[in-house]
Design a protein around this nucleic acid. Structure first.
Lengths: 341, 341
DNA sequence: TTGTAGGCGTTATCAG
DNA sequence: CTGATAACGCCTACAA
């Protein structure tokens, strides 16, 4: 009744060799004579044998699996980078296990344990800000880890990312130089999110550098969802006088803002400018196209994979890769005549 | 040098009980006296013990893991449903492993083996159209499977989905009744994709039902990407006379079409109407808002989880759940005066 | 309630 | 080049 799933033993018996030989045929072909190899592979085929992953991982103490924990799968922020990460991993002979933490630190900690318990050879985490216990846990078990989407402030861990604060500061510089003084900000929740916090800090830094008071910024923190971006935008527009520009923590929020603007009868960029961050595919397809910070997602994923596997295989030292970002000027941001705040 | 990862043995020794008792403390608390339970749990905590997943799965022949293979993670089509799927799974005590097949049947087959090899207790697959060998493989190993995002034409497998063809036909009926006769279609690649094929068939069916020739449809098949949607739209607009409406296989393609229309100086819906499918979050936030088919993504995910776990735990019979979809009328589709094709 | 011991499917170390 | 055989870490009858 219960169908029998073929095991190494079955193959060995059928091919009339030992399990060791079958195992070699699967993993180190060069150590087996062509004749037996052929015979074994044929019975593998015939029986439809698939190696049991758990058994293999346990015996080899190696799973060829990498775990990644991202804050959300619900929008495209991480999709491109992760895709590249997984493609590169595949080329290197590794598989990827993804789980999402829904931006909840506790859940992330759980997932870390989960992935490690599953035998992940290495981990990709987003950003650097998290409970030190997690790092201790990882270090204690010697699990190579790479942090992405941010540049780590210390040298404790390998990272592949970019300077969120610097990038946003540079965008804010541009905004200010284009004449804007009343700046509204829709930021992602900064609590426990170093990327969001860094981006916000970048705007404040720019304000101060230009001799303005960062407290004059009208800031709303909210979740990274289109709908939330729209709500925040509406809120900001209630101020008198209105901001002349709304800088958003990412393109998703900016999309919501643009959508809500139309609903409110406001013309972008003539009534108010909007900026984003990330340059996801959507950014150039909303109307008006979004001025934003371009992040090299695919490169980040690719490099992260190499950095991680290097650590695993060659025990290379922990390195940090800071990638360059650039500002993409599109129509959602407009130069205006300087006006008093 | 090499840090020791604590095992069941370590805990047992430290707590001065047998490994069996520790195991019980972790899995069947009720079978252990409160005193020892407490003591054991404390040493578990103290040692920072995490059960080895692979060993557990192997010994118990149960992994409490469900695998899901989706065609892509790059856009939001599957995100919401999968999120709900995983949340429900979590409530039921299961974990989710996701992998993406990039719309490649071969890759999907590989991933199926991969997930099964990893000990998945059950699988979620998208749609029903795939090599029979995959089903044989799954059946042979008795791996419960649920098909989602489509309704299966036969009763061979459990499914939770909706009638793609019927839904699109109903939308096409509406379009035709609103006066449109020259219909352009941007379809997802139908080869190996039953959802895309069904949706396209729905349009054709509607045409015939209204006494028109389905061959008059101007159809372009392309990949589900914003950019591709734009290209296809531009192509369609080269026809003379132009279509009065472009029906898109999903909201992603429609978003591309709308974006391209603006670029071409065409006003939607006055110059040409556009429709989508799926009702992803974006659909109501593009301009003009998209007339589309609303799919109950979260419900689908939730129900799929229950159906699958029921199969696993109670060996319930395979059931099919066909969910209702509805047409959401928004501004991208406009009534016009009937004109000769 | 607790302990003993066999087994889950592989890999890897040794001999041969 | 091939074959025994001991791990790997945990679960689960079965016994006590």
């Amino acid at each position: 009744m219960t169908p029998q799933i073929p095991t190494l033993d079955d193959v060995a018996r059928e091919a009339d060799v030992s399990t060791a030989t079958v195992s070699r045929c699967l993993n180190e072909k060069q150590k087996v004579s062509p004749k037996t190899l052929d015979r074994v592979m044929k019975t593998v085929e015939k029986l439809g044998y698939t190696p049991n992953f758990n058994a293999r991982a346990m015996a080899a103490k190696r799973s060829f699996t990498i775990g990644a924990i991202i804050p959300t799968m619900e929008n495209a922020i991480f999709a491109r980078g992760l895709q590249a990460f997984q493609e590169t991993l595949h080329e290197l002979g590794y598989n990827l296990l993804v789980s999402s933490s829904a931006y909840q630190p506790k859940l992330e900690a759980e997932q870390v344990r989960e992935l490690v318990a599953r035998g992940a050879d290495g981990l990709l985490l987003i950003g650097y800000e998290r409970d030190q216990k997690i790092y201790d846990y990882l270090d204690g078990r010697n699990i190579p880890t790479v942090l992405a989407w941010a540049s780590s402030p210390d040298a404790a861990h390998a990272f592949v990312g970019f300077d969120n604060q610097g990038a946003m500061r540079s965008l804010a510089d541009t905004v200010i130089e284009m004449g804007h003084r009343r700046i509204g900000v829709i930021s992602g929740a900064t609590n426990g999110n170093d990327r969001a916090a860094g981006r916000l800090a970048g705007i404040k830094e720019s304000m101060r550098a230009h001799g303005f008071d960062a407290n004059d910024l009208n800031i709303i923190e909210t979740q990274y969802e289109i709908e939330r971006g729209g709500e925040a935008f509406e809120q900001l527009m209630k101020a008198t006088p209105k901001p002349t520009v709304v800088m958003c923590g990412n393109d998703v929020l900016a999309t919501g803002a643009i959508s809500k603007a139309r609903e409110l009868g406001l013309d972008i960029p003539n009534d108010v400018s909007v900026t984003g961050f990330d340059d996801i595919e959507l950014a150039s397809h909303v109307w008006p196209p979004l001025t934003t910070v371009h992040v090299p997602h695919r490169e980040m994923g690719r490099v992260a994979a190499h950095v991680l596997i290097d650590q695993i295989e060659k025990r290379s030292t922990k390195v940090g890769h800071e990638l360059n970002v650039s500002i993409v000027m599109r129509d959602s941001l407009k130069r205006i005549k300087v006006q008093d705040p």
